[in-house]
Design a protein around this nucleic acid. Structure first.
Lengths: 196, 196
DNA sequence: ACACTGACAGATATTGACATCTGTTAGTTC
DNA sequence: GAACTAACAGATGTCAATATCTGTCAGTGT
C-alpha cells in the first residue's frame, strides 16, 4: 500500500465533499464546488468517483456508519437481551433525531436517498437488522425471547419502530410526545418478543 | 330541509371536485376546472367553500371516511379482540394499498395533506385510534389483553404499523414481501398486547 | 333577497432564453 | 506514463417575462 503524498486521495475528496454538502446542502452542492475546495479541476474528482451520485452515496455511507458504529458495541454487552435491545433502539433513535436537528443538510441528503430506496440504504438497513437479529438470537438462546424466525423478527422490530428512525417521518420528531410514544412502542415490541 | 333544485349544492361541487382531482391530480386540478365541470363560474364555488384548500380537504375527508367506515363494523363484532384487531388492521392496510394502486391521483392528494400534518389528518388518525382503543378496551375487559393505558396502546399499535398504512411509505408497498412483513409485525404487536 | 356572474388585484405557475453543471476526452505537465 | 487540466456536448438549473389561477366584490337577473 503506497502512500501517495502528492496525489489527490479518495479520503480527501470525501472530506471536502462532506464539508461542501454540509455547507450548501444536497440541492446546491456541485462537483465543481468540491473540486474548488480541494484546489483541483472537477475532472480530477472523476478519476476517483464514477459519478456525482457515487460521491454523494460514499459520503452518506460514511455518515451512516458513524451513526450505527457505536451501536454495535451494545450488541455483545453483558445484560439481558431486552435491556440491550431497548438501549440499541434508543441509541439509534437518539442519533437519528440529533442528526436531523443538528446536521439538517446531511440529513436532507440521506432523506433523498431514503425515498428512492437505494442500495446504500438497503445496506444500512441490513446492517441494523443484523445487529438486532444478534440480540434477539441471544435472547432466544437464554430463554428470554421466544420467536420462530429471528431474521423476520428483527425486520419486524425495525418496521414497528420505523416512525422513530425512518427519515421520512422526521417532520414528526419535533412533537413533544415523541419520546413517550417511542417508549410505548418499544415496550409493546419487547413484550411481544418475550417468552411466556 | 328544502331541496334546492335550481341552485348549486355542496354535494354537487364535492362530486365534481373529486372527479377533477381524480382526472388531473392535485398538481393540475384548479377551481376553474371544477366550475367548468359544473357549467358555472368559479365564483359560485366560493359561495360554498371558503378556499381551494377547504374544498380539497372536504373531498379528502369524504374519501378517507369511505376507507375507515367499513372498518367500524369490525369493532363490535362477536370475536376475540385479537381476531378483530387483526382483521381491522388488515382491512385498513388492504384499503390503503388498493387506493394507492388504483386511485393514484386521489392518493397523491392525501399524501400531500399527510406530509404537512393537517387537522384533517389528525381527525382521521384520532378516529382510527378510537376504533383500535375500543377493541383493546374490550380485550382488556375480557382478560385477553393486558395494557396499562388503552389510549397509549392504541396509538402504539398505529405507530408500530405505520410502515403499512402511512402514505409516506407508499413507495415500499409494491415490495413482494410486504404482506409477510406486515403479518409478522401484527403478530408481534398482538403478542405484546396479550395477557400472560 | 338571493344565487350567480364577470371583471379585477395579487399570488402562483409556466415558459423559454440563458447559465451552470455533469461527465468525457484529447492533450499537457512533471 | 500517471495525474491532472481544459475544452467540450448534452443535461440540468435559473431567472425574469408572461400566463394562469385564486379569492373578492360590485353588478345582473330572477
Amino acid at each position: 500500500m503506497a502512500v501517495n503524498e502528492s496525489g489527490l486521495t479518495r479520503e480527501e475528496i470525501l472530506q471536502a465533499a462532506e464539508e461542501v454538502l454540509r455547507r450548501f446542502g444536497p440541492a446546491k452542492a456541485t462537483v465543481v464546488d468540491v473540486a474548488r475546495a480541494l484546489g483541483v479541476s472537477h475532472g480530477s474528482v472523476y478519476r476517483h468517483f464514477a459519478s456525482k451520485v457515487a460521491l454523494r452515496d460514499a459520503v452518506t455511507a460514511l455518515w451512516l456508519a458513524r451513526i450505527t458504529e457505536p451501536l454495535s458495541a451494545i450488541v455483545h454487552q453483558a445484560a439481558p437481551a431486552s435491556t440491550r435491545l431497548r438501549m440499541w433502539l434508543e441509541g439509534l433513535v437518539a442519533q437519528k433525531h440529533a442528526k436531523a436537528k443538528f446536521e439538517p443538510e446531511l440529513f436532507a441528503t440521506y432523506l433523498a436517498l431514503a425515498v428512492d430506496a437505494t442500495d446504500m440504504v438497503r445496506t444500512h438497513v441490513a446492517h441494523m437488522e443484523g445487529d438486532i437479529a444478534a440480540i434477539i438470537a441471544d435472547g432466544v438462546a437464554h430463554g428470554e425471547f421466544a420467536v420462530a424466525d429471528v431474521q423476520a423478527a428483527a425486520r419486524a422490530v425495525l418496521d414497528a419502530t420505523a416512525r422513530f428512525h425512518n427519515p421520512v417521518h422526521a417532520s414528526s420528531w419535533t412533537s413533544p410526545q415523541i419520546d413517550a410514544e417511542f417508549n410505548t412502542v418499544v415496550t409493546l415490541v419487547l413484550a411481544g418478543l418475550r417468552a411466556r
